[in-house]
Write a protein that binds this DNA or RNA. Structure first.
Lengths: 179, 179
DNA sequence: GTTCACATGTAACAGGTTACATGATTGG
DNA sequence: CCAATCATGTAACCTGTTACATGTGAAC
């Protein structure tokens, strides 16, 4: 989906600033299947305001940086619905990690061990993040999406635990339990 | 990773045409974590030939379409190694399906049911594809990557089986066992 | 005092996607 | 005969990313 629809979608849950939209998309509970950064969000919000799919309200506090709070209009809600009814695109998954794993024999034990260790750490962090997000949210749709992320992350962790050592013919340091 | 490195990586396993590279990337055992299409592959191969990272040999058969077979040079192999030793980028996962699931209440039972059904079918196909790929390949690195895909796909199927009905407050038709 | 979080925005650039353009052979 | 597979390539377009530019307040 494009950034436009993403903004409409996040605004559907309540008004927000560009900064908050990015945070939800890139760090919140949805960040495992969404990506967006300022460079695309701010222009999109300007355009959406022009098209009257969202309204903008500027909050100016003396001293504090002013913030622009965006909210969905009825037209915006309709546009979101329309976007949701368009043909569903396939998931996109790109993994440099898996690409690297194809060339384990070219990498050398040291680098390979480092990569595998890093990946296990990343997966554990991701799992923690997802559990936190799940705890802060009781919306059924969101729980489904976050739960999906948790299920896959757990599967990845489990796979890493049992297969990381066999990525190549090279001997990789075994994972320690207390790592 | 960029298309350039992708081409070098696939050529590492043996010479190939642009057509075959795309097929490996988009339909083969690696397609679950790689994506590339003609529009990016052909220009990349031309550039790589100019840079002497690959060699090109044209095979012309009377009648048959001629094919350009590319092979890695020593320089190309070094370039691949160098690329593999650059800092590892995080995985990219974008899912319109999960995005849609956030708005289950906006979707209507019919569309939601259709989406969930489609996703289960897609996952089953993907699993079959991965098992086939695994059977045709005994390279350790590839087996690790394909196995990773299988593990995650199985987790997704399992999650769908137990949670698809609870994506929203709406009642979704339960999955049938023989579907 | 320095780093982090809040907050907005632009511009150049890179990268890849889609559509177009073409054509032979094989199998059903 | 029609569809699918093999086979190569260009060009316009779109989209998004990176880097730049700027500033406050709070916490440590």
């Amino acid at each position: 989906m494009n950034v436009r629809t993403l903004c409409l979608g996040i605004l559907y849950f309540g008004e927000a600033t560009g900064y908050e939209i990015r945070k939800t998309a890139s760090e919140g509970g949805f960040s495992h299947f969404i990506e967006a950064n300022y460079g695309s969000i701010y222009p999109a919000l300007t355009k959406l305001t022009q098209d009257e799919l969202v309204t903008m309200r500027e909050e100016v506090f003396s001293g504090k940086p002013s913030r622009k709070v965006y909210a969905l209009t009825d037209q915006g809600r309709e546009a979101l619905k329309a976007a949701l009814n368009e043909p569903l695109r396939a998931d996109i998954f790109k993994s440099e990690f898996l690409f690297l794993s194809l060339y384990a024999d070219l990498l050398g034990t040291e680098r390979l061990t480092e990569i595998m260790k890093q990946r296990r750490a990343d997966l554990r962090n991701e799992l923690t993040r997802l559990h936190d997000a799940m705890g802060q949210c009781d919306h059924p749709g969101s729980n489904f999406a976050i739960g999906y992320g948790i299920a896959l992350t757990e599967a990845a962790i489990s796979y890493m635990a049992t297969h990381a050592a066999s990525a190549s013919g090279l001997q990789v340091e075994p994972a320690r339990a207390a790592e």
